[in-house]
């Protein structure tokens, strides 16, 4: 199974109709710009980046919560924009960030977990449906009796387990996980990450994993894409990305991870902040914060160039910087 995608998005944020009349022009915000990647069956592609970089928008476009304004998303050979491909939607499900908001507070857990099965009419027999729900609950480490409770009776970690059970109930092959552990405490985060890895090996799932936490990504991903201001700046195998980050932004993110082993040692803080996406910088979006930026970075937008198989970087300075890199690392 492949998710081949050349998706792009174009979000229009406009002031109210009335204000349009008051000679204010329409303004558009380019949340995601010409992002392309593919995910192979059984792998975990992680998208990382800071808030506002467009990683969640990409996830939402893939599952159909937003329609891409440009480009297309191809799932198992079929274009998802094509109405014919609607049945494919069953095969991809999503796990949301906030386990307190993603479960309907008025439904019992049993009904929540069964919803995708009912919606797609997979099992019509009540007894078999109940058995399937119990099986799903057991699969995520809950007991069948939990099905009779309401979401508020569970802790954050248990709710995320319910969320996972719901996502799994329609037998999907592909799960989009939007920051599934960022609302959880560390000890619970470890439980959920382990569970997700277990399920992946047992059920042969493919994940798209959205996160801002690089340490979590390093743990779960096989490949990693780094996004900055709506564009993919680097994509590579996880091992390679963390050992030899090539884009200056990737390197900055990795340096910013607090290191528990080197206690008391300060990270090298990066100057500057993420620019306003309504007025992105010219050329390479990262150039105002980049230590290697030159005149060309300011004027030209770098393309994502494949350097080795399976990895690509969008940086013009990369070629002339190679020598410099090895000495500075």
């Amino acid at each position: 199974m492949r998710v081949e995608k050349i998706g792009r998005d174009f979000d229009v944020s406009r002031p109210w109709l009335n204000r349009v009349l008051e000679r204010e022009p329409r303004r558009s915000l380019c949340a995601v710009n010409e992002v392309s990647f593919s995910i192979r069956k059984g792998e975990t592609l992680a998208l990382v980046g800071e808030s506002g970089c467009g990683k969640s928008t990409v996830a939402r476009m893939i599952v159909g919560l937003h329609t891409p304004s440009r480009g297309r998303i191809v799932f198992d050979g079929a274009d998802l924009a094509d109405p014919q491909s609607a049945p494919l939607r069953r095969r991809m499900q999503m796990i949301f960030q906030d386990p307190y908001a993603s479960l309907n507070p008025r439904w019992r857990v049993r009904a929540i977990v069964a919803e995708p099965i009912v919606a797609h009419g997979l099992v019509r027999d009540q007894a078999r449906l109940a058995a399937r729900v119990s099986e799903l609950l057991a699969q995520v480490g809950l007991v069948a009796e939990d099905g009779d409770k309401f979401p508020h009776e569970f802790s954050g970690g248990q709710r995320q387990r319910i969320s996972i059970a719901r996502a799994l109930s329609a037998n999907p092959e592909f799960l989009v996980c939007d920051e599934p552990t960022s609302a959880l405490d560390v000890s619970v985060q470890a439980q959920i990450l382990n569970l997700m890895k277990d399920l992946q090996t047992r059920l042969g799932l493919t994940y798209l994993f959205i996160s801002h936490n690089l340490a979590v990504v390093a743990h779960i991903a096989t490949r990693v894409g780094v996004m900055y201001l709506g564009s993919l700046v680097e994509i590579a195998d996880a091992k390679q990305l963390f050992e030899r980050p090539r884009h200056p932004y990737t390197r900055m993110l990795i340096d910013a991870i607090p290191d528990l082993q080197m206690t008391g040692k300060a990270r090298t803080p990066v100057a500057g902040e993420v620019p306003n996406p309504l007025a992105p910088p010219s050329g390479c979006a990262f150039h105002p914060r980049c230590p290697h930026a030159d005149g060309r970075c300011r004027s030209e937008r770098p393309e994502l160039i494949t350097q080795e198989p399976g990895s690509a970087v969008a940086c013009q300075a990369i070629g002339r910087r190679v020598g410099l890199d090895h000495s500075s690392l």
Binding site: L65, R89, M94, N104, E115, H120, R166
Partner: peptide, 13 residues
């Protein structure tokens, strides 16, 4: 805009 409504949309209701 709550996630449970979006979840239902993803599910295909």
């Amino acid at each position: 805009h709550k996630e449970y409504v979006q979840a239902a949309r993803v599910i295909g209701r």
